[in-house]
């Protein structure tokens, strides 16, 4: 504990001394870390950030619902469901493969153009995020569903539970415990990707920073927006670490979770 603290102080001091003595540090400070500009740009960036949060909050729900649907389709057995399985597989292939920014362009600029209507950027953003992220999350969910041993389904069906009852009461609760860490990782990735809705013309944190930067000829607003996203992500990241560690501990104790 003491050694760790001492070593941290020494390394920190070395890095600090090295950085502030580097030629050009003053320039970096002036262009990236201007406190006055940071303070001045914060209110607008914060307003924009609330829009990002809004897109994020809605998307969490839509992604969850669509992903669960797709994952269920992919795990259905029997020849009757072949078309559903194919559609679900094609969906995940397509949107996992396609760069998010292309999905954004197609949805955000394509849809308003062909329908010739004004659709709020927040709606378009949610659609784009949902298309891309539901494909990732669906695959994680599918892996979780398939990781539940078939004997569990068998036991539930033997008791007379139907397909849906078995899924809801036996398979999903066990699958969710297994997939929570990877799902939270996807959530972290989504938290920053909602910053890309700026290219739809929405004045979110990134766009607000861009405006402020071009007005002041200074990059500090970008740093401000970046820090907001990092602060948003940290609790989730810590929570993921904590939960993963807890799962590991429980498994070592011999529990099946």
């Amino acid at each position: 504990m003491l050694i760790a603290a001492a070593s941290t102080v020494v390394v920190g001091a070395l890095v600090w001394a090295f950085v502030i003595n580097t030629e050009g540090w003053a320039k970096v400070q002036a262009f990236f870390l201007d406190p006055a500009i940071a303070l001045a740009s914060l209110p607008k960036i914060w307003d924009g950030f609330l829009l990002n949060l809004e897109v994020l909050a809605i998307s969490v729900v839509t992604v969850g619902v669509v992903a669960l649907l797709i994952a269920t389709f992919r795990t259905l057995r029997g020849p009757v469901f072949f078309p559903l399985r194919v559609i679900a597989a094609a969906y995940t292939d397509l949107f996992r493969g396609m760069p998010f920014i292309i999905v954004l362009y197609i949805v955000g600029i394509g849809i308003p153009t062909i329908t010739n209507t004004r659709i709020p950027p927040i709606v378009l953003g949610v659609i784009a995020v949902t298309l891309t992220y539901s494909s990732y999350v669906a695959e994680v969910m599918r892996a979780g569903i398939e990781a539940v041993h078939p004997s569990q389904r068998l036991a539930a069906r033997a008791l007379g539970l139907g397909y849906v009852q078995t899924l809801v009461r036996i398979v999903l609760p066990q699958a969710i415990r297994k997939i929570t860490p990877p799902l939270m990782n996807d959530f972290v990735a989504m938290q920053k990707d909602v910053g890309l809705v700026s290219i739809l013309g929405a004045v979110d944190a990134v766009r607000a920073a861009q405006i402020a930067a071009s007005q002041t000829y200074n990059f500090t607003p970008y740093i401000v927006a970046g820090v907001l996203f990092v602060l948003l992500a940290i609790p989730t990241i810590r929570l993921t670490d904590w939960y993963s560690a807890r799962l590991r501990d429980r498994e070592q104790m011999g529990s099946i979770v």
């Binding site: 004997s151 036991a155 069906r157 008791l159 007379g160 066990q174």
Partner: peptide, 26 residues
């Protein structure tokens, strides 16, 4: 199936439910 009771070789209890919930689920 609800009119039969089945016991399996590997028990197949539901690990996420308490023993009592396992017993009362059906």
């Amino acid at each position: 199936r609800a009119r039969f009771g089945v016991v399996f070789q590997h028990y197949n209890l539901f690990p996420h439910l308490s023993v009592l919930d396992n017993v009362t689920l059906a």
